[in-house]
Design a binder for these strands. Structure first.
Length: 484
RNA sequence: GGCCCGUUGGUCAAGCGGUUAAGACACCGGCCUCUCACGCCGGUAACGCGAGUUCGAUUCUCGCACGGGUCACCA
């Protein structure tokens, strides 16, 4: 069997759309599960859309996700160049080959004539389609035009009757009447190929066996079939994948702010979680497990699990998966990720590792962190309603009593003994002597120290983290507030 | 509008002629607990509509509706 070769062929537009990344992922998985090659080809023929540094975005994103390519612009390979703009010279001769075979023809229609045609169609309420004016020019006419230096394009000669059947691995056979097909342009006036043409030629020249691409190309797929036939080339396996939507009506777009990989990373998601989640968009694994590393995806991925209908991007589900990845992180690893976020709001000298340990199980996205720990540096004004706790039957009055009991205990602890174990022991002595539930002491303490309804860690941990001086002053402030 | 494609709970989705129609996320309830989470246990919730084919349709066929895509010298 032929070696599997797949390709990812993005245009450098400056950012990596999630849908594109998913296409790259699937493409990569197909190559790797078949011990094949994954090729990167940059399709930069649209100079107007060219963005500085955009190629680096592609490189960096793929690398970060672990989608390493075997051949590409930077690493080279046997079928280069891998940047389409550097391949420009080679297309015209393929188009001319088609002209000789009678599968394509020179067209000298200028913009004015075409515009007139379009206007006419529009006036009659018809869909414009090139009228094949130049399709049957005589050899003499063509030569005369060529000699006169008239600009021309090369168009593909579509069959006038019959139908074409195109096979897609997912959708099966798609048949279209040839009369629906326009004599599409292969080579533009400037001698450059159109996307459709360049794509077919490049894929063939690069020995691509499987093509994964967006569903928007499905309608033009039959034209590809005809092109391959005209050349007598083998048609690669095509797999068209559905779009990723923001909701039922709208595609996930740049302006939604979470359409690109970079956006997601900036929003506090882990690379592995993003890769895992996008694999699940429009694809279902065989079993019930849905957490997969890239390695596992290579084993698990199967074209049969791909969906034929669009998938809606669900940030909540991504969050849940991200949380699972965060929980699975080794503590040192989590600390590496979390520390910069903690430091956004916590500047004081404290036990960062301890904070991380408290945070890891309750962090869904990294960007949630600063807000969760901001009270460590600064106790904001808070509502004494926080001292109410229905479940433990605690109210402001009981809290006041508790804080007054706690204060001397804290004051009595030596700075040298200021650690969680010691604070814990002392507070539990208090609890025992008062014969009350743990909550009656610990909850008011937690509220007084944090001024928040929920915190990572309880009163004991927070006391330890903010130190003796702040612990005492915050308890005093609580007493003051509750005494009003 | 023509052509192509699709349609299972709120979301992702399994299913491939006979099922109590999986699972995950979200949601609700309980347990745990110094808060909120985590974790564990349990719960609510779905085959777009109408005809066929068949002993039997979520599954096959055809219409309809709805949604998406595509109709460039853009990729």
């Amino acid at each position: 069997m032929k070696k599997v070769r797949t390709r990812f062929a993005p245009s450098p537009t400056g950012y990596m759309h999630i849908g594109n990344l998913r296409t790259a992922l699937f493409t990569y998985l197909i190559a790797k599960q078949n011990d094949g090659d994954f090729i990167l080809r940059i399709e930069d023929t649209d100079r107007e859309r060219y963005v500085e540094g955009a190629v680096d975005v592609i490189y960096n994103t793929l690398k970060q996700c672990g989608l390493n390519w075997d051949e590409g612009p930077d690493v080279g390979g046997p079928v280069g160049p891998y940047v389409q703009s550097e391949r420009m010279g080679m297309f015209k001769k393929y188009a001319e080959e088609l002209v000789e075979k009678g599968e394509a023809y020179y067209c000298f229609c200028d913009k004015e004539r075409l515009d007139g045609l379009k206007a006419e169609c529009e006036a009659n309420g018809k869909t414009y389609s090139y009228d094949r004016h130049c399709r049957d020019l005589s050899k003499e006419e063509i030569q005369a035009n060529l000699d006169a230096g008239k600009p021309y394009v090369i168009r593909q000669k579509m069959p006038l009757e019959g139908s074409v059947t195109f096979h897609d691995e997912l959708y099966g056979d798609i048949t279209v009447e040839c009369t629906e097909l326009e004599d599409q342009i292969l080579i533009k006036t400037d001698g450059m190929p159109t996307y459709n043409f360049a794509n077919v030629v490049d894929d063939h020249l690069m020995g691509i066996t499987h093509v994964v691409r967006g569903n928007e190309y499905l309608a033009s797929a039959p034209k590809y079939e005809l092109l391959y036939k005209a050349f007598g080339w083998e048609v690669p396996t095509y797999i068209h994948v559905e779009h990723i939507m923001k909701d039922k009506q709208h595609k996930l777009s740049k302006r939604d702010g979470d359409a690109s990989f970079e956006d997601l990373i900036n929003k506090g998601y882990l690379t592995e979680a993003v890769v895992n989640y996008i694999a699940l968009l429009g694809w279902a694994p065989k079993g019930e497990e849905e957490i997969f590393s890239l390695e596992e995806l290579i084993k698990e991925f199967d074209i049969k699990g791909l969906s034929k209908s669009p998938a809606i991007f669900d940030p909540l589900k991504l969050k849940a998966i991200n949380a699972k990845y965060i929980k699975a992180l080794a503590p040192e690893e989590f600390e590496k990720y979390a520390t910069p976020y903690i430091r956004q709001t916590v500047k004081r000298d404290t036990d960062i590792s301890r904070i991380c340990a408290l945070l890891q199980d309750r962090t869904e996205v990294l960007t949630d962190i600063p807000e969760k720990v901001d009270f460590l540096d600064e106790l904001r004004d808070y509502d004494t309603a926080l001292y109410f706790n229905k479940k433990n039957k605690i109210d402001e009055e009981k809290s006041l009593t508790a804080l007054k009991d706690i204060l001397p205990v804290m004051q009595g602890i030596d700075e040298a003994d200021w650690n969680e174990q010691y604070i814990h022991d002392k507070l539990f002595e208090l609890i025992a002597s008062k014969e009350v539930k743990n909550a009656l002491v610990l909850l008011p303490l937690r509220v007084a120290l944090s001024g928040k309804a929920s915190t990572p860690g309880g009163g004991i941990e927070i006391s330890y983290l903010i130190g003796k001086a702040d612990t005492i002053s915050r308890i005093e402030k609580g007493i003051e507030l509750l005494s009003k």
